[in-house]
């Protein structure tokens, strides 16, 4: 029971202080492993790898995985709900305020400036993903097959007959092509 309480407390704190997305929880998880001897840093690296490549936001995946490693199924459920509890509450408060001030000229003009900047940030994230895909491994050689697949899928997402298809279909297509062409 003490174990579950400690786990709950640690993940409440992680949720509250991890600002900027799932990977921001990493330093907290690393410290948890070292402080309580729950898992080694090598185990944590494996958990990050699985969390990055399986469905679901990285931060949630990592919380679930760490919780399971520490205390089985109850631990995974507890860690997952603890890590979202405080941010969820804070977001609801902000959403309420936002709904109230939506019409204010200050809020409107701030967001109209913020949108292009955030678009730039998302473009940077996309750039990171695409670079990783095109320059795999040590990053010295362009993977031409990957480039061809990327270009092919991108064209399919843009041209008339196929652009209305659900994104999951393109992801499934990627998985099938990956297995057929042995992509890495």
């Amino acid at each position: 029971m003490t174990l579950l309480l400690t786990l709950c407390w640690e993940f409440l704190l992680t949720g509250l202080f991890a600002v900027g997305g799932g990977l921001a929880t990493l330093p907290f998880l690393s410290q948890m492993g070292a402080q309580y001897m729950w898992f080694t840093q090598e185990t944590l690296v494996n958990m990050v790898a699985v969390s990055e490549s399986t469905p679901g936001p990285i931060g949630i995946n990592m919380a679930t995985y760490v919780g399971y490693t520490v205390a089985g199924v109850p631990g995974s459920v507890l860690a997952t709900f603890s890590v979202v509890l405080l941010p969820l509450t804070i977001t609801l408060v902000i959403a309420r305020a936002l709904a109230r001030y939506r019409q204010s000229p200050l809020v409107n003009s701030t967001f109209s400036v913020l949108r292009p900047a955030v678009t730039g940030l998302i473009a940077a994230a996309a750039f990171g993903v695409i670079r990783l895909v095109l320059l795999p491994g040590d990053g010295n050689e362009i993977a031409w097959v990957n480039l061809a697949v990327l270009a092919g899928i991108f064209v399919l997402t843009q041209i008339k007959p196929t652009k209305k298809l659900h994104p999951t279909l393109f992801i499934a297509l990627g998985a099938v092509l990956g297995m057929l062409l042995k992509l890495k």
Binding site: I122, V133, N146, F154, G174, A175, G178, K184
Partner: peptide
């Protein structure tokens, strides 16, 4: 591993499309 290699490429293509729409 191969399947995820392909999924990463598809995700890259999809995000690129989203960035264009967003801009």
């Amino acid at each position: 591993q191969y399947a995820f290699g392909g999924i990463r490429i598809a995700v890259g293509a999809l995000i690129l499309g989203t960035v264009i729409k967003l801009s």
